[in-house]
Design a binder for these strands. Structure first.
Ligand SMILES: [Zn+2]
Ligand SMILES: [Zn+2]
Ligand SMILES: [Zn+2]
Ligand SMILES: [Zn+2]
Lengths: 150, 150
DNA sequence: AAACAGTCGGATACAGTATAACGTCTCGCG
DNA sequence: CGCGAGACGTTATACTGTATCCGACTGTTT
């Protein structure tokens, strides 16, 4: 993330949670803020370190609980191939997106491609399979790094 | 896996490795055999336990080294969302497949869907992204379990 | 035969990721 | 006020994966 206005994202998250009758508590908001401020995905322990800035004493479960909540609410995504988390770029509507992960610079692009979703869905239904969660992560080199690297 | 003839898979793997000038050693063959005999993906430590059957004393690096080799040779795949491994169902030709993972019975189907591959490729090239590895895992309910569950 | 290089794998220790279990505090409600 | 639910602190522990060092074996060179 690290968008032009992270505060806006946080405020939108606030509104979303209120509308859903769930609480974006201080800890949860803090985790979301840290993720949104990072240009690359963060591991749970990196988030933990970031939250400890300023002599706070926190343990892993605190972070994992906040992450569980944010994942449930679709405010963050987990990148399985990296064991890391990113803020969602468009949490307003429920979605299942795909990720392009640059192994050179670490940047991650979240895309929402209709064609991928369709082909995934039809492959599943051909097998009589009922999808619940989709993990689609492409690891490679982003446009910027490909330029430099040549 | 747990196909009709696991030995056949092993023998084919042998031939493949010989053709490539690499060695399918006893340990590697053993890991592959264990994976092929299992109806569901196995974690590294489950493989380790299986290999210890009969008072053998083995440490994690042994299994991870064998898995690294088998992954490089395309004889097994890693399921990132499960931290587990499966034998490949068609290792003869290099491929990048997709997985349907039933969270009820634990069974995994490896599919190779041209449409998914195409849509993934075109989404990447639209972003100028150069894919190297593709992780596509759909978690849900398989046809069999959906039947029973209703 | 002796020396050597390369690969495989045994063994110990450790790093990184995630959760179980239990206690406390607070808030909203009857 | 007394109660129940949810959030969070705290400790300990489980699970997943690596770094490192060393010894055994194989095939090659001299
Ligand atoms: Zn998203
Ligand atoms: Zn890049
Ligand atoms: Zn395969
Ligand atoms: Zn099933």
């Amino acid at each position: 993330m690290a968008s032009t206005s992270d505060d806006a994202v946080l405020d939108r998250a606030d509104v979303l949670c209120r509308a859903r009758g769930v609480k974006l508590t201080a800890q949860r908001r803090r985790v979301l803020a840290i993720l949104c401020a990072s240009p690359r995905p963060l591991g749970a322990y990196e988030i933990l370190d970031a939250m400890r800035e300023g002599t706070r004493t926190l343990a892993p479960p605190t972070v994992y609980r906040a992450l569980d909540f944010l994942l449930e609410q679709g405010l963050v995504h987990k990148l399985e191939s990296l064991h890391a988390f990113v803020g969602c770029s468009h949490p307003e509507h429920p979605h299942s997106s795909q990720f392009l992960i640059c192994k050179t610079c670490g940047a991650v692009a979240e895309i929402e491609d209709e064609a991928i979703a369709r082909s995934l869905g039809s492959a599943a239904s051909m097998s009589g399979f009922q999808p619940q969660r989709r993990v689609v992560e492409v690891i490679g080199t982003c446009a910027g790094c490909a330029q430099k690297g040549r």
